[in-house]
Design a protein around this nucleic acid. Structure first.
Length: 778
DNA sequence: CTAGCCTTGATG
DNA sequence: CATCAAGGCTAG
């Protein structure tokens, strides 16, 4: 957040070992708040995004009906909750798991075993250490210390709870004397308050849970969120129980490595502001003014637009002007954006004259990053999609390439698209004049040539403007007539193609599905069916060539590739099990929320299919290319690439398997918390099923148990290696935050690049719509 | 300032 | 009435 970044250049002035400014008053704070709107602001902001820990990603128990169903299932399966608590099992689960200061956990566990008799849970139940085995969930996501309960939306330790409270209540202003990347763990959490608070926010602690009026007692209105968090815990615990049953033997206590997962979440100060949602709870009347400040801070619409504040708030320095400013901000949000768009438009002409590819990415030089014409991020596409329509720039001149235009001819080839019937519907946004749109047009035109009325829920008003919608509703292509898998007519293509073929086909021995939960079998079948159709598009992708040695990193080509991958992903999703049963508008929302993570998961999976030795220091690109990250010029991008490879390595060590990969994609996609989604119970239902199936599968198919000792990765971060069946389930889920962080950084990179083109680089293409595009409704 | 423990009070 | 997530207190 800019409050902090404004100090970035001053950080080094502090020669004290203390990494925070001990005292700061409100005035000072106000100044910092204002700093976000001053020319010293840059985009190297602390993400205000709530990463939504996997709790949020995987909450499965928000709905009362689901609750009942889940509870019933639990009782049937495990009966780990013997009492007649009619409140919810979640509370019990939480209490059980986090209460490590007494023996209730053990006794409860014993009790459940007794109740179940020998049939289900007749497994040795250690008298001690259950809390340890549950410990992966009992570690504070900020510092790894012992969790004391739900605090400000998360399970955190007591110290981080207090720290968060003090910071918010007292409007603390911290500074980092280093690079704002300090490792936060139990022993070092005091060393840098800046990074600690940053991490608090990033793991999802909720500013709005700190009460401005300091009223004590009671419960806040985040019940559903908390319940969902509990639900995940419950889910994981159930897997523990199931695993214990399966194991039929003593489980090696292991609670040692979960904190390493959390610490691996340390992110740079550049994580995307996208989708950070400090939700303003209407039923929470006593919002702390701090929240509003942070809310605005997270909103990059303010970044680089000092005039906004002055227009809106004549007394930005006055403390009272930020107090109770919520409604003010809300009511002016739209206006803000409109103003901003006006600025973007008015400045676009001159702005396009100096084009650099992501020079500002992670840039800490305010003189460079200050750019009043910089368009905003679309922090929350679900709030703002309707504000910036692709038609806003529809009249824009097509050539914004400037120096990079040459990359079109030198960097990419999209020839020989199979059976290309380039007849995009009139008005199709995919016949984009944007550079990436041009690069991608062949594939997209080919695909979106015939949007149909198959989507009964389609919003007609947007059918001509949304690439996502068009793709979702496009007519099913004939598979049989155009399926390279059935012919040899592609054998003449490059080895890359074959390589992709192997990857995308991801052939799976269905004989192995005997021991796979039924739902995963269905996922596999669904996925396999799609892989057969997907092959049609591979040739187009494989002909892309990325030249990392270019000064600009060949970013246009990379965007083009990503654009195509977006298309493939949407195409995959719309044909996927369960997803195709969801209303189109909800499909769009889910995809817009999950696309980047799914994309990354796909890439990681792909790379994991390759021998590690064959792609050391390389990113296996979707086009089959090995991209040596050492060729990346921009250090920040290189760092992102390194973090991506770290994820790859982490997954490798998990011995991630195909059903697990599929399940993870579904879990990311089926997020009932996505704003505006109306079929949340249905989505939750799917999510829960997948979660259960994944847990069951990892229990039955954990072949990584042989790797019994955690090993350290080459990096400073430690990788958690599952030491038993239970942990693999947790490890897989716990990789999601990492994936999300990489995704957010990637999104930020893309947005910055797009900004440099005044939003026209990706205008009209699917990638752009995913990134910034309009919403289909609302 | 930190962090562990205590008090409070809405909730179900 | 138990729960639990807020805020408060205070030794270190």
């Amino acid at each position: 957040m800019s409050k902090y970044e404004s100090h970035q250049t001053n950080n080094l002035r502090s020669n004290s070992t203390k990494s925070y400014s001990p005292e700061s008053n409100d005035d000072e704070f106000e100044e910092h708040i204002d700093d976000r709107n001053t020319p010293t602001t840059n985009d190297n902001s602390i993400s205000m995004k709530t990463p939504q820990s996997i709790d949020d990603l995987l909450d499965v128990d928000d709905n009362d009906n689901q609750n009942e169903e889940n509870k019933e299932e639990i009782e049937n399966d495990n009966d780990d909750d013997g009492d007649a608590d009619d409140d919810d099992d979640d509370d019990d689960s939480t209490r059980l798991s986090i209460d490590d200061q007494n023996t209730s956990e053990t006794t409860r566990h014993k009790k459940s075993n007794e109740k179940n008799g020998p049939g289900v849970l007749d497994v040795p139940s250690p008298d001690v250490g259950l809390d340890v085995k549950f410990g992966f969930n009992d570690l504070c996501p900020v510092c790894g210390d012992k969790v004391s309960g739900f605090h400000y939306g998360l399970l955190t330790c007591e110290s981080c709870k207090g720290f968060f409270k003090r910071t918010v209540q007292n409007k603390k202003n911290y500074q980092c004397i280093d690079k704002q990347q300090c490792q936060i763990d139990k022993t070092q959490r005091k060393r840098c308050a800046f990074c600690r608070f940053k991490k608090c926010l990033q793991v999802g602690m909720k500013l709005e849970a700190v009460r401005e009026n300091r009223v004590r007692g009671g419960r806040n209105k985040f019940g559903p969120l908390y319940r969902r968090s509990r639900a995940l815990r419950q889910q994981i615990m159930r897997q523990h129980f199931v695993s214990m049953v399966k194991a039929q033997q003593n489980i090696m206590p292991n609670g040692n490595s979960i904190d390493t997962v959390h610490t691996s979440l340390d992110i740079t100060s550049v994580t995307n502001g996208n989708s950070m949602q400090v939700k303003s709870e209407p039923e929470q009347p006593n919002l702390h003014s701090f929240q509003h400040m942070y809310s605005s801070l997270q909103n990059p619409t303010n970044v680089g637009h000092p005039s906004h504040v002055h227009h809106q708030n004549p007394h930005p320095h006055h403390p009272s002007s930020t107090h109770h400013s919520h409604h003010y901000q809300s009511s002016h949000h739209q206006q803000q954006q409109q103003q901003q768009q006006q600025q973007q438009k008015s400045s676009s002409t001159s702005a396009s004259t100096s084009f650099n590819v992501y020079p500002d990415f992670f840039n800490t030089n305010p003189n460079v990053t200050n750019n009043s014409r910089m368009p905003s991020f679309q922090l929350n596409p679900f709030n703002t999609y309707n504000k910036i329509s692709s038609t806003t720039y529809g009249h824009s001149p097509p050539s914004l390439l400037l120096p990079q235009t040459s990359s079109l001819s030198t960097g990419v080839s999209t020839t020989n698209t199979p059976t290309n019937n380039s007849n995009p519907p009139s008005g199709s946004s995919n016949s984009s004049s944007s550079p990436v749109g041009q690069l991608s047009s062949k594939l997209l035109d080919y695909q979106i040539s015939s949007p149909t009325t198959t989507g009964t829920n389609t919003n007609n008003s947007t059918s001509n403007t949304s690439s996502i919608l068009s793709t979702l509703t496009m007519q099913q292509q004939s598979i049989a007539s155009n399926d390279p898998m059935n012919t040899d007519n592609n054998t003449g293509t490059s080895s890359i193609y074959f390589y992709n073929h192997q990857y995308l086909a991801a052939s799976y021995d269905m004989n192995e599905t005997n021991n796979i939960p039924e739902i995963l079998t269905k996922l596999i079948e669904s996925d396999q069916a799609y892989r057969c159709t997907e092959v049609r598009y591979i040739e187009d992708i494989q002909q892309i060539h990325i030249d990392l040695t270019r000064d600009d990193g060949d970013i246009l080509v990379v965007c083009s590739l990503l654009d195509k991958l977006c298309f493939l992903m949407v195409d995959w999703a719309r044909q996927s099990l369960y997803f195709k049963d969801i209303q189109i508008d909800n499909q769009i929302k889910l995809l817009k929320a999950a696309w980047i993570e799914i994309l990354i998961i796909d890439l990681i999976w792909k790379q994991c299919q390759q021998p590690k030795e064959s792609c050391l220091n390389c990113i296996v690109s979707a086009n089959g290319q090995l991209l040596n990250i050492n060729l990346i010029q921009n250090p920040a991008v290189k760092k992102l690439a390194e973090r991506y490879l770290q994820c790859v390595n982490d997954f490798r060590q998990l011995q991630w398997q195909y059903p697990e990969y599929l399940a993870l994609k579904y879990l990311v996609l089926f997020d009932p918390d996505v704003q505006g989604v109306t079929e949340s119970s249905l989505i939750e239902d799917v999510q829960e099923k997948i979660t259960n199936a994944l847990g069951e599968y990892t229990t039955d198919h954990n072949n990584s148990s042989s790797t019994s000792n955690p090993t350290k990765t080459s990096s400073s971060q430690q990788q958690q290696i599952p030491t038993n069946e239970q942990e693999k389930f947790a490890c897989i889920l716990l990789k999601l935050p990492d994936v999300r962080l990489v995704g957010n950084d990637l999104k930020k990179l893309l947005q910055l690049v797009d900004r440099k083109h005044d939003g026209k680089l990706l205008d009209g293409c699917l990638l752009g719509e995913m990134l910034n595009g309009l919403q289909s409704n609302n």
